[in-house]
């Protein structure tokens, strides 16, 4: 005689227990509610980005001018093509994931294995692309001068094309300037890599080249950054120039407001971390599929649950793409 109550004879009685009004298993439902809470976390970040952007609405960097690179195409101005490619990769891996779920419903182990594998590959391509994107962003390519007030001054020629520091500045006066390292003085003080040039050298270079002008952060009525006159350019750099900035990190950012770089690192980093953990979970599930765990269980619901998470990562990217690169 069994002592375990499997069914308490309560079918048809609304309040008797055993009802499943949402017709979803516990695991799937909890995945949904985890996704809701994670979606709120991400919207918190994106809304904070929106806050900072509205706070600096007249001087925020223009994304088209920041993300202009494509791998193996040096010097080609290709705004957004690479992120569009990344978006497509992620959507594609979402498709293979949903195909894996579909194959799971038909208990087709071979197909689930194949589609899970393709999903993992898609995820890896995406994470790799993001690493490349970060690398390009951190290195920067034109360089700029930060003012005492923390604004960024960039350089353009008379036609409005960007000019890199290395094209008009000569490094000559700062031979004696040495990077402060832990071993050279107090053990708890050190500084980052020194910029290639000093502000003084930038001033000299600007004076020597009549066709170089300064561009400020302020966005004018045409939606472009303001370019100063020649006299005004020299005055700005001489009076306010404080620091030469090359590339971006959490403190300074050659593209404009440091907050832009901070949010870029934080939001795409947090999303990249989600993709990375998604890939790890997918790999675990992939091996379970290969080992036949779900075949014996006669249910591929685990694939469905991890699929929900994977689609959610794609969903978040759709929003990050819009708010970081398009809007």
């Amino acid at each position: 005689m069994s002592t375990t109550v499997v069914n308490a004879d309560t079918e048809g009685k609304t309040w008797g227990g055993g009802n499943q009004p949402l017709k979803a298993s516990y695991g799937k439902m909890m995945m949904w509610f985890f996704i809701v809470s994670d979606a709120l976390t991400f919207s918190g970040f994106l809304a904070a980005y929106g806050f900072s952007r509205f706070k600096f609405i007249d001087s925020w960097p223009i994304a088209d001018e920041v993300f202009t690179h494509f791998p193996f195409l040096h010097g080609v101005n290709a705004p957004m093509y690479y992120v569009a490619f990344m978006t497509f990769v992620l959507i594609m891996s979402s498709v293979t994931m949903v195909l894996a779920v579909d194959a799971g419903h038909h208990l087709n182990k071979a197909k689930v294995t194949l589609y899970m594998f393709l999903t993992i590959i898609g995820g890896l391509i995406f994470v790799g692309s993001q690493a490349w994107e970060w690398n390009t962003f951190i290195k920067g390519d034109y360089g700029a001068v930060q003012t005492k007030g923390g604004n960024i001054l960039q350089f353009v020629d008379t036609e409005g094309h960007r000019v890199a520091l290395k094209d008009f500045v000569v490094a000559d006066t700062h031979k004696e300037r040495v990077q402060d390292e832990r071993k050279s003085g107090l053990w708890f003080t050190s500084e980052g890599t020194l910029p290639t040039y000093t502000v003084e050298e930038v001033v000299n270079g600007l004076e020597a080249h009549d066709n170089v002008l300064v561009r400020t952060q302020i966005i004018n009525e045409e939606g472009e950054k303001t370019v100063l006159s020649r006299a005004e350019s020299l005055r700005q750099i001489k009076e306010n120039g404080k620091l030469v900035v090359e590339g971006a990190n959490l403190h300074v950012n050659e593209y404009g407001s440091p907050l832009f770089a901070d949010f870029f690192f934080f939001i795409t980093g947090f999303h990249g971390f989600h993709v990375f953990s998604g890939v790890l979970i997918n790999i675990i599930i992939f091996f379970n599929v290969v080992l036949g765990t779900y075949e014996r269980r006669k249910s591929y619901e685990m694939v469905e649950k991890v699929g929900l998470y994977w689609h959610f990562v794609d969903l978040v990217w759709v929003f990050v793409f819009t708010f970081f690169y398009l809007v």
Partner: peptide
């Protein structure tokens, strides 16, 4: 851009995540 993003989010949720097939309550 924002409207098109919401359109994309709708189809990802409804068809890839099978929200279309869940109960109204969920």
């Amino acid at each position: 851009f924002i409207i098109l993003t919401i359109v994309k989010a709708y189809y990802i949720t409804w068809d890839f995540m099978h929200m279309r097939d869940e109960t109204k309550g969920l």
